[in-house]
Structure formats: C-alpha cells, structure tokens
Design a binder for these strands. Sequence first.
DNA 1: CGAAGGTGGTGAATCGCTTCAGTGATACGG
DNA 2: CCGTATCACTGAAGCGATTCACCACCTTCG
Lengths: 329, 329
Amino acid sequence: MPRKRATIREVAKATGLSPAAVSYALRGLQVSEETMERVRAAAAELGYEADPIARALASGRTGMIGLLCGSLEDLWQQSLAVGISRGLREKDRYALILDAVGDPARERALAQQLRDQRVDGMIVQPLDPAAPFWPELCESVPVVAIGDSLAGTAAEVVFDNRSGVTLALEHLRELGHRRIAVLTPTRASTPDRPADVHVTAEAERLGLDMEVFTAAHGLAAATEAAHRALRPGGPTAVFCFSDSIAYGVYAAARELGLSIPGDVSVMGYDDHPMSGLLTPGLTTVDWNIDGIVKAAVRLVSAAADGGARRRRVVQKPTLEERGSVRDLT
Amino acid sequence: MPRKRATIREVAKATGLSPAAVSYALRGLQVSEETMERVRAAAAELGYEADPIARALASGRTGMIGLLCGSLEDLWQQSLAVGISRGLREKDRYALILDAVGDPARERALAQQLRDQRVDGMIVQPLDPAAPFWPELCESVPVVAIGDSLAGTAAEVVFDNRSGVTLALEHLRELGHRRIAVLTPTRASTPDRPADVHVTAEAERLGLDMEVFTAAHGLAAATEAAHRALRPGGPTAVFCFSDSIAYGVYAAARELGLSIPGDVSVMGYDDHPMSGLLTPGLTTVDWNIDGIVKAAVRLVSAAADGGARRRRVVQKPTLEERGSVRDLT
DNA sequence: CGAAGGTGGTGAATCGCTTCAGTGATACGG
DNA sequence: CCGTATCACTGAAGCGATTCACCACCTTCG
C-alpha cells in the first residue's frame, strides 16, 4: 500500500516531542544526538518526507532556480540547459526552465512569471540585455546573466566576445577571405550590441568587406537567412554567431548545391557536439560549455544562499579548427 | 521603485471586501461582475500577484508537471523536453525537467523526488518500464508514460515499435542487407523489452542475420559501441534505436575511415532535425515528435485536472529515407 | 551559594492563500 | 404572504512547515 504522507505533527506525536523540536532535529539543529536519532527513526518508520511547499511558504525559499533561455531551438542552449539543470540538482535545487522563443517581449513576461513563481534565483541568457525591466528584476531576485552584461546589478558569466570575434575573423583573414557575411540572431533592436560592435570594429581593423544578416529563431529561419547571404557573387565565407545558425548555412548550401568549403566557407560560434559530425566538420569558436555551466551554477547558488550578488566571470574562447573554412591563399 | 509584493489581505482592505471574496473574484468565481471589476482594479493598482506557494499549500495543487527523461544526452529527448515544456507553459503550467542520465537507479530516485516535490502530474520516458516502484508511484500521482507501457496504471503515449522495427528492417532487407547489427541503448536488464523482442522476431521473420550491441548513455558511449559493431567482416548495415546512437556510428565510421553508406549503411530511429544535415542524410524512422508532445501534454493536463488517468495513444511511425542506406541489389 | 551561561526543548505565531459552512439579502413559485 | 432558492459575500479553519521568544534545567565559576 502506498504509505500515506506523514506530517511533521505525526512524527512529533510518535516521538512525544513538539513539532518544533522535530523540525529542528530533521535539519540537525539545536537538539541532542539522542533525540535526533529518535526523530530520524520515527520519520523513517512513518515514511515522512518534508513537504517542500509548506517549507517554502514558511521559510521563504523554494529551492528552485529559474533558467530563462533566449531560444531553446538553439542546440547549444539546449546543452547549456541540460548541464545547468544537472548541476543544480547536485546542489539539491531544481531548475525551472523557460524558453523565450527568440522574442524579447516574451522574455520580459517569462522573467516576471519566474519571479512570481518565487524562485530563489535565476540564470538568464538575455535576448535584450539592455531592456529596462532588468534592473528592477535584479533588485527583487538574484540574477546571473550568461553571455551578455545586464542593465542591472546581476552576477555575470560573460563571454569575451571581443576575443571570440577576433579569433574567428583573424582566422578567416589569414586563410585569405576578404568578403564575408555575418549571420547573427535577431535580438532586441539595440544596434549597439557588443558582439556586433566587435564584429564591425574587427572587420574594419582587419580590412574585411562585411555584410550583416540577421536570422530569426530556429533552423528554418537560419536557413532562410543563409539563402539571403549566399546569393551569387556573395561572400567567400560566412561567420555565424552560433553553431545552430551555421547548421542553417549547411542546409542552405545543400539546397543551393554549393559545397562547403569549396564554394563557401563557414565558421561557427559555440561548439556543439554535432558540429564535429557534420561534413566537413564545422570550424568554430569553442566557449567551453562545462566551464560556463559550472560558473553559472556556482554563482547562482551563492547568490541564492544570500552570498555575493555581484560577481563576474569572464569566459575565454578557443578556436576549434575542423575543415569548413577553405584556405584561399 | 520595485513595487512590494501585495497580499490578498491588502487587496481586501483596499476594496473593503473579505479576503475570501477577493480570492473568489480573482478567479472569477461566485461574485458579481461589478465587484470583480473593483477587485481587479485594486489588484492591478497594488501590483498584486498571487503567491503560487501559498496557493499550492492551500489548494494542494502546484501547477507543476514533472518531466523525467531517460537520458537528456539524447538530442531527440532534448527536443521532446523543449516541446513539452512549451506545451505545458501554454496551459499555464510549469515543467520540472529531470534527467535520469541513463541510470535506472537514478530514475527511481528522481521519480520519488518529483512526487515529493508535489507535482500535479508527471510525464516519464521510462528507462525501466517494468521496475517495481511504478505501480505505487502511479497510484500517488497521475503519470503519463512515453514510449513504453508502464508496470502501473498510467496513461500512455506508446510507440508502435512493432511497426517501427518492421519499417526499418524491411527497408534494409529490400535493399539487400542480410547481416545487420542492432545498436540499442542499455536499459534495465529486462531481456524482454518490446523493442528487442520485436527486433529479434522481425529479424527472424525476414531471415536476417543479426547481432545486438548495447550503447550506454551519451555520444561517446554510442561511438564506442559502434566501434565494437563495425569490426572488419561485420554487418553491412547498422540499425540504431535512436538517432543519437546513429550519430555515434557516424563518428566511429569517420574514425575508422569507413564511408557511409559505401562501406556500411546506417539506419536511425526518431528523426531529429540534425539527421537531415549530416552527410549523407540519416535514413530514419520518424515518430512525429509534435504529435507525441501534444498527446503527452493533453493527457497529463487532463489527468492532473482530475480527468481520466488511463488513456492510451498509439503513435505510428513513418520511414524517412535520406541516403545513409546503400542499395546492394 | 547565587548569578551567569549554555543545552535542549516548548508554544504560539506566521507565511498567504483556499475553502467550507454560514448568513443576510433579494427573487420566486405556490 | 410564506417558504425556499439563489446570489453575493463573510468568518474562520486549515494547509504543513519554520521561527521567535521563552523556559526549565544543569553547569560552572567568582
């Protein structure tokens, strides 16, 4: 028979103690070794499991961390979510994963819903890091931002996009590419996103002829954007701001009968496991997902436990050369 | 200034009503149009948001649905999780996603933790459908099983594996393959899993010479299993019980310098978006993930709302032919 | 020997909402 | 015109923990 859920009061009755004593005992506080043993035994006997809901109401902490992703269509973000979810479980927390589906408006709504859900903290991969609601949100709940700095006092795991872009563009340039297309996800219409700033700055510095295309959320949209970029007489190389977008370029190239890297070179950004399995393997910028996961989990746990709320970890990229970039020299 | 969280009592005070009336009004119950309007206005004015924790404690319903995945390393299961999470959000529920990481023991622990977390229902992709804890669990919370039937009274979205296997093996046979390897994920050591039963039965019926290999959790393990299967003089075709395992075969083939489908044919099972992007595209059995997501969300919502707990939806497969199977005839 | 201090507990309030049993009205059928 | 529904709303009792303010008792020390 499914053992009925026991309350703390029943355990108290069984041991002859007060509920308060039991509560303390179960958390190893304030009581003698002996009673702790007795309480534990009784709890086990009765099949007692603390009710997280009641606990949350009384203590004000739910044990949940919100994870707000920009677009879970993106495989790399999926990996990130899986990793973070696991990492949090190891800290005895649960992840509440939400997906903004590439839409800044929804990002705003979901962030608020997450807060209303009383998460102890949240990890965010912001679509629109400059949106005006962030500061207020960061005020009311500990936030860790991944990827971009937030307009608000949040902890951060930022990517050194400057280095990443430099790594990618210098590689392309060294192999003789001069006319390149950049495919970036549509974000909020802030024209001054760091990544874009860096890419234009670097392109200028390196004397590259560059055109920027934006790709909406999802593989189909990336493929469509790639079609726009790959018109005849177009660039010799495409630099994509995520591996998932690069997959769209592979798809488009296949549809157009173009060979990679024969007709067009492709460069990614992220390094997802699938990138190594494509033909040719996708040359990409590796952001060390494990490091990001660990940092984010560490920062958010610390902040949720009342620790430092303003920390900053900078992630360095490395180049993962595979074969999707042709040597034109 | 970050508006302080208002309680229902404050709204009551502001409107001159009782907390109970406010509670009813906010849920559109039992009150006159006019007071509802007044309450809504006051609530908006005060920035009131219901506290889900208190609500859960009082009502016994958390609005959360647990999602227990067998192995989130599997890309198809990732897609499934993303889809279900979105689907549930549309029904104003949250998904609590957990990953058994391919380990039946952990599956058991997580299932229990999920129940203790007071989810209103759970969706499970069981690693070990015959495990003895399921019946009890199904008793204490509505469960929807995806993929396999459970040892317990759960609702189900089952795959017609018989048809799936037939589709795959007949295709291989028609193209002249006789010696095939089967790569299946390690599950609980029940030797009589439907899929395996079907595959041996079908192989026998079709006169195929078959050898079964098991692949543990993750791409690396799949690659390793593929190495075992692809020894010289081995099979002409490999049938993988998930696309993610097939990716391992692609990886192994590359390492061994074998061409697909020149030296060995590969057949998948799931149909993940990436399968179309590989070279050659992976021929696979498509299970219509959208249909599964919709069915699972529908079933679990219904069950969580107190509706029918025993429903059964059978999913039919289709063959997605792409080019990873060579015609030997 | 009495005050101070540390253990190991108790009782009651509290968290914010839901829900059940009423309670005055007003409407209605006979 | 009375009895009975129906409607709109109130009061109070939970839900199952946590936590704060005490308290009794035993040491310990000046």
